[in-house]
Nucleic acid binder design. Structure first.
Length: 112
DNA sequence: CCAGTGACGGAAT
DNA sequence: TATTCCGCCACTG
């Protein structure tokens, strides 16, 4: 199924909501799960307007390097790291420790 | 309508 | 292996 731009944001939010606690994923992984190989930027843009979504765990979504690139977009930049640490994810220098181990592939859900 | 920008990713150097 | 450059698509001015 190829999501249209109208459904794209909803699809992204659905996946982000499914991220298990204590795990993280990347923008590209979400885009790939939606079938848009080069849609990582769109995913990021969707997250930019995620402030309209209540309870969206945007702090569990980072770039492929495991860097908290989007922390600036939070009300308090330190809150993103704080939430991650609260879930057992170690963050050092705006970077997730053992990112490979914490990484979660959205396709793991398997029904998208 | 055209040009610039961006929570990114992959290829090239 | 590490940096840098380019492409990608939607949104704004």
């Amino acid at each position: 199924v190829k999501p249209t731009k109208e459904n794209l944001y909803d699809m992204i939010y659905q996946i982000v909501f499914k991220i298990p606690k204590g795990r993280v994923t990347s923008y590209g992984a979400i885009a790939n799960c939606l079938g848009i190989k080069s849609g990582a930027r769109m995913v990021g843009y969707a997250m930019n307007v995620s402030h309209t979504i209540a309870g969206l765990p945007a702090h569990r979504v980072v770039n492929r390097n495991g860097v908290l690139t989007g922390k600036h977009h939070f009300d308090d930049p330190g809150e993103m790291q704080k939430r991650l640490e609260n879930e057992g994810i170690e963050v050092e220098n705006d970077q997730i420790v053992d990112f490979k181990k914490r990484y979660w592939d959205p396709s793991e859900i398997g029904y998208i």
